[in-house]
Design a protein around this nucleic acid. Structure first.
Length: 284
DNA sequence: GCGACAG
DNA sequence: ATCTTGTCGC
């Protein structure tokens, strides 16, 4: 039964989401809290996690949420959890967490109950951390709600606080030489919100790394770089690959649209909300 | 009408 | 995010 989460949530909902982000933002820790994060070779780091959500084509509701754990430094998958979910909220730039986060928290909770010894010591998250409109992207959100160190790894620059993917920015990218090269992303506020990272020698597009939770920007960049066999760090890449494969194995191919139920419009303002808000006060 | 827009 | 196969190059 394919549904289509289209349109924009009511302003009232966006207001609640913003308030939630502002409240939880105060709990973010933007420094190293673990000994291995300070070690030049990350000695003591044994497990790195990655999360991702892949979608069924032609259906913005049905998706597969995946959590993988890789050994470090071997980067071999030691745990995989793929789960079909029904997304409720639509994608709105700046509010990605309210669409995808509940299912990622669920996955961490399953791991905590079933294989606690495999709990990752850090999570790489597809998206931004403090490099965000409200300074609280999905990587911060997942970190605060799980207590795990998290790193935001975005594939495109979120243009916020004066940051622009303009000619000057593109020139800085062009000047990146070898894998591991970086340049800081400084907003108008003067704060360094993240780093552009050339993740390997022959990658044209950089990654945009920012602090999620319980890790410094320096360690976040260094760890992201050390997890890259290809452009996308292996934990996120494996989560992406495996969630897509799971969808293929589950659905076996594209399905025809369900007549009469192709679209689901948002309820007008003032009516009962059309989807769960997934605020932390409801989760915790 | 046009550009912007993490996933 | 997804729509999309093969193909050129290291």
């Amino acid at each position: 039964m394919a549904r289509e989460a289209v349109g924009r949530p009511p302003e009232e909902t966006l207001s609640l989401w913003k308030r939630e982000q502002a409240l939880l933002r105060a709990r973010v820790v933007t420094r190293d809290t673990e000994a291995w994060q300070r070690d030049p070779g990350f000695s003591g780091l044994r497990r790195v996690g990655g999360v991702d959500v892949s979608f069924v084509k032609g259906d913005s509701v049905s998706a597969c949420a995946s959590l993988v754990v890789l050994s470090y430094p071997e980067l071999e998958v030691v745990y995989e959890d793929c789960h079909m979910v029904s997304l409720t909220a639509p994608y709105v730039s700046g509010f990605l967490a309210f669409r995808e986060l509940p299912f990622l928290v669920d996955a961490v909770q399953r791991l905590r109950e079933e294989e606690p010894q495999l709990m990752p010591q850090v999570l790489l998250v597809d998206g931004n951390g403090v490099l965000h409109h409200q300074g609280f992207g999905v990587a911060c959100h997942l970190g605060v709600l799980t207590g795990l160190p998290c790193i935001g790894v975005a594939k495109k620059l979120l243009q916020v606080d004066g940051l622009e993917n303009n000619a000057r920015h593109k020139e800085k990218i062009r000047l990146l030489q070898a894998g591991g090269d970086t340049f800081p992303l400084m907003g108008d506020s003067g704060a360094i919100l993240g780093m552009a990272l050339k993740s390997h020698d022959h990658s044209t597009k950089p990654l945009y790394v920012s602090v999620g939770h319980k890790v410094s920007l320096e360690a976040a960049v260094r760890l992201t770089r050390s997890c890259c066999r290809f452009r996308i760090p292996e934990p996120v890449r494996q989560a992406d690959i495996r969630s897509r494969d799971y969808i293929r194995r589950t659905l076996g191919g594209p399905r025809p649209p369900a007549p009469g139920q192709e679209r689901q419009e948002w309820a007008p303002p003032g009516s009962p909300r059309a989807f769960p808000l997934w605020l932390s006060t409801e989760l915790l």
